[in-house]
């Protein structure tokens, strides 16, 4: 059976990893293989790690406000490399107007503050079902 693999990544300089770690653990407990990149990753490193790990999804977390630049760069590189089989989600301190823009960029879901872990787990289970 194919195992669901998810890369949890923190782009940029933001060191707030509480959310990323909580989500990583929740996915692990739901039977997912979670690859955690650690802090201070560049978008280029994140995409390359996702390729080598052959993940089904990338979860990006950024609380510094740099999400529009960093998440967009991740999406641009994915597009440039012709990768369309990796689902990208994100979380962090993200104003509503940015949520719309992020979705237009191709980010499948934005999990803002207060999102129940089950919502995130269910979302990824759906990917596995596809």
């Amino acid at each position: 059976m194919a195992k669901l693999r998810v890369l949890v990544a923190k782009p940029g300089l933001d060191g707030h990893d509480r959310g990323a770690k909580v989500v990583a653990r929740a996915l692990r407990d739901a039977g997912v293989e979670v690859i955690y990149t650690g802090l201070h990753q560049t978008p280029e490193q994140i995409v390359e790690a996702a390729i080598q790990e052959d993940v089904d999804a990338i979860g990006l977390s950024c609380l510094s406000g740099a999400h529009m630049t960093l998440f967009k760069t991740v999406m641009d590189i994915l597009k440039e490399k012709g990768i369309d089989d990796i689902v990208v989600t994100c979380g962090g301190i993200i104003p509503d107007e940015d949520v719309t823009k992020l979705k237009e960029m191709g980010i499948a879901a934005v999990f803002g503050p207060g999102t129940p872990l089950q919502t995130i787990v269910d979302f990824h289970r759906k990917i596995a079902g596809k």
Binding site: K3, R25, R28, D29, A30, V32, V34, A49
Partner: peptide, 17 residues
């Protein structure tokens, strides 16, 4: 659970590229 947290890349980030 059958899940796993794989964190060894944390150490190896700069080799990724």
């Amino acid at each position: 659970t059958g899940g796993a947290l794989l964190g060894d890349r944390i150490r190896m980030g700069s080799l990724t590229l």
